[in-house]
Design a protein around this nucleic acid. Structure first.
Lengths: 130, 130
DNA sequence: ATATTTATGTTATATTATTACACAGCGTTA
DNA sequence: TAACGCTGTGTAATAATATAACATAAATAT
Protein backbone atom coordinates (compact mmCIF):
# COMPACT_ATOMS: atom_id res chain seq x y z
CA UNK A 1 0.00 0.00 0.00
CA UNK A 2 1.05 3.51 -0.65
CA UNK A 3 0.65 6.59 1.42
CA UNK A 4 -1.66 9.05 -0.25
CA UNK A 5 0.14 12.26 -0.86
CA UNK A 6 -1.86 15.37 -0.33
CA UNK A 7 -0.60 17.89 -2.77
CA UNK A 8 0.23 21.37 -1.64
CA UNK A 9 -1.27 24.36 -3.36
CA UNK A 10 1.53 24.85 -5.87
CA UNK A 11 1.84 21.16 -6.53
CA UNK A 12 -1.90 20.89 -7.14
CA UNK A 13 -2.01 23.84 -9.51
CA UNK A 14 0.88 22.49 -11.52
CA UNK A 15 -0.36 18.92 -11.50
CA UNK A 16 -3.80 20.01 -12.70
CA UNK A 17 -2.28 21.89 -15.57
CA UNK A 18 -0.11 18.99 -16.69
CA UNK A 19 -2.93 16.52 -16.17
CA UNK A 20 -5.26 18.49 -18.43
CA UNK A 21 -2.66 18.91 -21.14
CA UNK A 22 -2.83 16.58 -24.10
CA UNK A 23 0.89 16.83 -24.61
CA UNK A 24 4.03 16.91 -22.47
CA UNK A 25 4.61 20.32 -20.98
CA UNK A 26 7.89 22.12 -20.54
CA UNK A 27 8.80 23.88 -17.35
CA UNK A 28 8.72 27.40 -18.69
CA UNK A 29 5.48 26.79 -20.52
CA UNK A 30 4.06 25.62 -17.21
CA UNK A 31 5.43 28.73 -15.55
CA UNK A 32 3.78 30.95 -18.14
CA UNK A 33 0.47 29.19 -17.62
CA UNK A 34 0.41 29.44 -13.85
CA UNK A 35 1.62 32.99 -13.46
CA UNK A 36 -1.95 34.19 -13.20
CA UNK A 37 -2.34 31.87 -10.22
CA UNK A 38 0.51 33.51 -8.38
CA UNK A 39 3.39 31.20 -9.23
CA UNK A 40 5.92 33.65 -10.48
CA UNK A 41 9.36 32.07 -10.44
CA UNK A 42 10.98 29.10 -12.20
CA UNK A 43 12.08 27.65 -8.91
CA UNK A 44 8.53 27.40 -7.68
CA UNK A 45 7.73 25.35 -10.75
CA UNK A 46 10.80 23.14 -10.53
CA UNK A 47 10.20 22.42 -6.87
CA UNK A 48 6.67 21.29 -7.54
CA UNK A 49 7.81 19.26 -10.54
CA UNK A 50 10.52 17.53 -8.51
CA UNK A 51 8.05 16.52 -5.87
CA UNK A 52 5.42 15.37 -8.36
CA UNK A 53 8.00 13.25 -10.13
CA UNK A 54 9.20 11.83 -6.82
CA UNK A 55 5.72 10.69 -5.81
CA UNK A 56 4.96 9.39 -9.28
CA UNK A 57 2.13 11.75 -10.22
CA UNK A 58 4.03 12.93 -13.26
CA UNK A 59 6.97 11.68 -15.30
CA UNK A 60 9.75 13.52 -17.02
CA UNK A 61 10.37 12.74 -20.67
CA UNK A 62 14.13 13.07 -20.53
CA UNK A 63 14.75 13.35 -24.24
CA UNK A 64 12.31 16.25 -24.45
CA UNK A 65 12.75 17.98 -21.10
CA UNK A 66 9.03 17.81 -20.66
CA UNK A 67 6.54 16.43 -18.18
CA UNK A 68 3.36 14.37 -18.48
CA UNK A 69 0.87 13.15 -15.93
CA UNK A 70 0.98 9.49 -15.04
CA UNK A 71 -2.18 7.71 -16.14
CA UNK A 72 -1.01 4.36 -15.01
CA UNK A 73 -2.69 3.70 -11.71
CA UNK A 74 -0.23 1.02 -10.72
CA UNK A 75 2.66 3.41 -11.04
CA UNK A 76 2.61 5.45 -7.89
CA UNK A 77 6.32 5.77 -7.76
CA UNK A 78 8.47 6.92 -10.62
CA UNK A 79 10.72 3.94 -10.74
CA UNK A 80 9.75 2.12 -13.89
CA UNK A 81 8.69 4.17 -16.86
CA UNK A 82 8.34 3.56 -20.57
CA UNK A 83 7.11 5.86 -23.30
CA UNK A 84 6.56 5.93 -27.00
CA UNK A 85 7.40 9.16 -28.76
CA UNK A 86 6.41 10.12 -32.28
CA UNK A 87 9.31 11.81 -33.99
CA UNK A 88 7.04 13.87 -36.20
CA UNK A 89 4.11 15.08 -34.10
CA UNK A 90 5.88 14.58 -30.78
CA UNK A 91 2.94 12.73 -29.31
CA UNK A 92 4.03 10.88 -26.20
CA UNK A 93 2.23 7.91 -24.72
CA UNK A 94 3.03 6.03 -21.57
CA UNK A 95 3.44 2.36 -22.30
CA UNK A 96 1.77 0.04 -19.91
CA UNK A 97 2.81 -3.48 -20.70
CA UNK A 98 3.01 -6.12 -18.03
CA UNK A 99 5.44 -8.11 -20.13
CA UNK A 100 7.79 -5.23 -20.64
CA UNK A 101 7.70 -4.16 -16.99
CA UNK A 102 8.39 -7.65 -15.88
CA UNK A 103 11.21 -8.13 -18.32
CA UNK A 104 12.93 -4.91 -17.35
CA UNK A 105 12.34 -5.21 -13.63
CA UNK A 106 14.04 -8.58 -13.72
CA UNK A 107 16.78 -7.66 -16.12
CA UNK A 108 20.26 -8.44 -14.86
CA UNK A 109 23.41 -7.23 -16.54
CA UNK A 110 26.51 -9.30 -17.23
CA UNK A 111 27.65 -8.99 -13.63
CA UNK A 112 24.28 -10.17 -12.38
CA UNK A 113 23.40 -6.72 -11.26
CA UNK A 114 19.74 -5.73 -10.95
CA UNK A 115 18.55 -2.17 -11.02
CA UNK A 116 16.12 -0.30 -8.85
CA UNK A 117 14.79 1.98 -11.53
CA UNK A 118 14.64 2.49 -15.26
CA UNK A 119 13.38 4.80 -17.94
CA UNK A 120 12.76 3.68 -21.48
CA UNK A 121 11.89 5.88 -24.43
CA UNK A 122 10.86 4.38 -27.77
CA UNK A 123 10.91 6.51 -30.89
CA UNK A 124 9.02 6.04 -34.12
CA UNK A 125 6.04 7.30 -36.03
CA UNK A 126 2.58 7.22 -34.56
CA UNK A 127 -0.42 5.93 -36.52
CA UNK A 128 -1.36 9.35 -37.81
CA UNK A 129 2.13 10.23 -38.93
CA UNK A 130 2.97 7.07 -40.82
CA UNK B 1 27.70 -2.85 -44.19
CA UNK B 2 28.16 0.65 -43.03
CA UNK B 3 29.91 3.51 -44.69
CA UNK B 4 32.97 4.52 -42.74
CA UNK B 5 32.64 8.07 -41.67
CA UNK B 6 35.78 10.12 -41.86
CA UNK B 7 35.60 12.56 -39.05
CA UNK B 8 36.34 16.20 -39.67
CA UNK B 9 38.90 18.01 -37.59
CA UNK B 10 36.48 19.29 -34.95
CA UNK B 11 34.64 16.00 -34.80
CA UNK B 12 37.88 14.10 -34.33
CA UNK B 13 39.14 16.39 -31.58
CA UNK B 14 35.90 16.11 -29.68
CA UNK B 15 35.53 12.39 -30.23
CA UNK B 16 39.07 11.75 -29.00
CA UNK B 17 38.39 13.71 -25.85
CA UNK B 18 35.17 11.86 -25.06
CA UNK B 19 36.71 8.54 -25.99
CA UNK B 20 39.59 9.02 -23.56
CA UNK B 21 37.31 10.13 -20.75
CA UNK B 22 36.39 7.56 -18.14
CA UNK B 23 33.10 9.27 -17.49
CA UNK B 24 30.35 10.94 -19.52
CA UNK B 25 31.29 14.45 -20.53
CA UNK B 26 29.07 17.48 -20.63
CA UNK B 27 29.08 19.88 -23.53
CA UNK B 28 30.59 22.84 -21.72
CA UNK B 29 33.21 20.69 -20.08
CA UNK B 30 34.13 19.48 -23.55
CA UNK B 31 34.24 23.07 -24.72
CA UNK B 32 36.57 24.04 -21.90
CA UNK B 33 38.86 21.13 -22.74
CA UNK B 34 39.14 21.84 -26.45
CA UNK B 35 39.57 25.58 -26.33
CA UNK B 36 43.33 25.20 -26.51
CA UNK B 37 42.78 23.36 -29.79
CA UNK B 38 40.93 26.26 -31.32
CA UNK B 39 37.34 25.28 -30.71
CA UNK B 40 36.01 28.38 -29.07
CA UNK B 41 32.24 28.39 -29.24
CA UNK B 42 29.46 26.16 -27.86
CA UNK B 43 27.99 25.77 -31.29
CA UNK B 44 31.15 24.20 -32.63
CA UNK B 45 30.89 21.63 -29.89
CA UNK B 46 27.19 20.98 -30.33
CA UNK B 47 27.56 20.57 -34.07
CA UNK B 48 30.27 17.99 -33.65
CA UNK B 49 28.28 16.22 -30.92
CA UNK B 50 25.17 16.09 -33.10
CA UNK B 51 27.09 14.50 -35.91
CA UNK B 52 28.91 12.04 -33.67
CA UNK B 53 25.61 10.98 -32.13
CA UNK B 54 24.04 10.65 -35.57
CA UNK B 55 26.74 8.31 -36.81
CA UNK B 56 26.78 6.35 -33.57
CA UNK B 57 30.30 7.17 -32.39
CA UNK B 58 28.97 8.61 -29.17
CA UNK B 59 25.72 8.43 -27.25
CA UNK B 60 23.91 11.01 -25.20
CA UNK B 61 22.90 10.07 -21.68
CA UNK B 62 19.63 11.94 -21.67
CA UNK B 63 19.07 11.97 -17.95
CA UNK B 64 22.48 13.54 -17.43
CA UNK B 65 22.90 15.73 -20.50
CA UNK B 66 26.23 14.08 -21.05
CA UNK B 67 28.00 12.13 -23.77
CA UNK B 68 30.01 8.92 -23.83
CA UNK B 69 31.86 7.13 -26.59
CA UNK B 70 30.26 4.00 -27.95
CA UNK B 71 32.33 0.94 -27.19
CA UNK B 72 29.89 -1.44 -28.69
CA UNK B 73 31.23 -2.32 -32.09
CA UNK B 74 27.90 -3.56 -33.36
CA UNK B 75 26.27 -0.26 -32.66
CA UNK B 76 27.28 1.97 -35.51
CA UNK B 77 24.05 3.82 -35.50
CA UNK B 78 22.50 5.39 -32.47
CA UNK B 79 19.21 3.62 -32.68
CA UNK B 80 19.22 1.16 -29.83
CA UNK B 81 20.96 2.18 -26.67
CA UNK B 82 20.92 0.98 -23.07
CA UNK B 83 22.92 2.18 -20.11
CA UNK B 84 23.33 1.54 -16.43
CA UNK B 85 23.85 4.55 -14.24
CA UNK B 86 25.05 4.53 -10.65
CA UNK B 87 23.06 7.04 -8.66
CA UNK B 88 25.91 7.67 -6.26
CA UNK B 89 29.15 7.82 -8.24
CA UNK B 90 27.41 8.54 -11.57
CA UNK B 91 29.37 5.84 -13.33
CA UNK B 92 27.71 5.04 -16.64
CA UNK B 93 28.16 1.81 -18.55
CA UNK B 94 26.74 0.88 -21.89
CA UNK B 95 24.82 -2.35 -21.65
CA UNK B 96 25.44 -4.82 -24.36
CA UNK B 97 23.02 -7.66 -24.03
CA UNK B 98 21.81 -9.59 -27.01
CA UNK B 99 18.71 -10.67 -25.13
CA UNK B 100 17.76 -7.16 -24.17
CA UNK B 101 18.40 -5.76 -27.64
CA UNK B 102 16.35 -8.47 -29.19
CA UNK B 103 13.51 -8.05 -26.75
CA UNK B 104 13.32 -4.30 -27.23
CA UNK B 105 13.86 -4.32 -30.98
CA UNK B 106 10.90 -6.66 -31.29
CA UNK B 107 8.73 -5.00 -28.71
CA UNK B 108 5.27 -4.08 -29.97
CA UNK B 109 2.85 -1.93 -28.03
CA UNK B 110 -0.85 -2.59 -27.56
CA UNK B 111 -1.63 -1.36 -31.04
CA UNK B 112 0.98 -3.63 -32.54
CA UNK B 113 3.23 -0.72 -33.20
CA UNK B 114 6.97 -1.32 -33.50
CA UNK B 115 9.55 1.36 -32.99
CA UNK B 116 12.59 2.32 -34.97
CA UNK B 117 14.68 3.45 -32.05
CA UNK B 118 14.91 3.34 -28.29
CA UNK B 119 16.93 4.55 -25.37
CA UNK B 120 16.91 2.80 -22.02
CA UNK B 121 18.53 4.03 -18.83
CA UNK B 122 18.75 1.82 -15.76
CA UNK B 123 19.50 3.33 -12.38
CA UNK B 124 20.92 1.71 -9.29
CA UNK B 125 24.10 1.36 -7.32
CA UNK B 126 27.25 0.04 -8.87
CA UNK B 127 29.38 -2.63 -7.20
CA UNK B 128 31.62 -0.14 -5.49
CA UNK B 129 28.80 1.98 -4.16
CA UNK B 130 26.68 -0.77 -2.67
C1' DA C 1 5.59 24.35 22.93
C1' DT C 2 9.35 23.45 20.71
C1' DA C 3 12.11 21.08 17.35
C1' DT C 4 12.24 19.29 12.81
C1' DT C 5 10.93 18.88 8.39
C1' DT C 6 8.77 20.44 4.35
C1' DA C 7 7.13 24.05 1.47
C1' DT C 8 7.18 28.89 -0.03
C1' DG C 9 8.81 33.47 -2.05
C1' DT C 10 12.37 36.11 -4.18
C1' DT C 11 16.58 37.46 -6.49
C1' DA C 12 20.28 36.23 -8.89
C1' DT C 13 22.90 33.16 -11.53
C1' DA C 14 24.51 28.83 -13.69
C1' DT C 15 24.00 25.50 -17.26
C1' DT C 16 22.47 23.73 -21.58
C1' DA C 17 21.31 24.60 -26.31
C1' DT C 18 19.92 27.23 -30.54
C1' DT C 19 19.29 31.17 -34.11
C1' DA C 20 21.17 33.87 -37.48
C1' DC C 21 24.51 35.15 -40.66
C1' DA C 22 28.82 34.95 -43.44
C1' DC C 23 31.89 32.10 -45.63
C1' DA C 24 35.06 27.92 -46.99
C1' DG C 25 35.77 23.33 -49.07
C1' DC C 26 34.41 19.64 -52.00
C1' DG C 27 32.18 16.81 -55.30
C1' DT C 28 28.86 16.93 -59.09
C1' DT C 29 27.24 18.11 -63.47
C1' DA C 30 26.27 20.81 -67.17
C1' DT D 1 35.30 26.11 -65.72
C1' DA D 2 31.57 27.81 -63.57
C1' DA D 3 27.47 27.22 -61.27
C1' DC D 4 25.23 24.43 -57.90
C1' DG D 5 24.24 21.76 -53.77
C1' DC D 6 25.87 19.98 -49.70
C1' DT D 7 28.44 19.86 -45.49
C1' DG D 8 31.28 21.94 -42.34
C1' DT D 9 33.31 26.14 -40.06
C1' DG D 10 33.60 30.68 -37.30
C1' DT D 11 31.46 34.16 -34.61
C1' DA D 12 28.17 36.81 -31.95
C1' DA D 13 24.08 36.96 -29.78
C1' DT D 14 20.41 34.94 -27.39
C1' DA D 15 17.06 31.43 -25.91
C1' DA D 16 15.79 27.69 -22.97
C1' DT D 17 16.53 24.87 -19.00
C1' DA D 18 17.81 24.52 -14.22
C1' DT D 19 19.95 25.65 -9.63
C1' DA D 20 22.13 28.39 -5.57
C1' DA D 21 21.47 31.16 -1.75
C1' DC D 22 18.83 33.24 1.60
C1' DA D 23 14.74 34.45 4.35
C1' DT D 24 10.32 33.07 5.98
C1' DA D 25 6.08 30.28 6.86
C1' DA D 26 3.36 26.16 7.45
C1' DA D 27 2.87 21.34 8.77
C1' DT D 28 4.33 17.47 11.52
C1' DA D 29 6.53 15.13 15.17
C1' DT D 30 8.37 14.74 19.95
Amino acid sequence: MHKEHTLTKNQQIIFDLIDKSTEPMKAYSILFNVQKKGIKAPLQVYRALDKLVEIGKIHKIESRNAFIACHNSSCQVAKATAFSICEICEKVTEISSAGLSKYLANFKDKDGMKYSKYNLEFFGLCKKCR
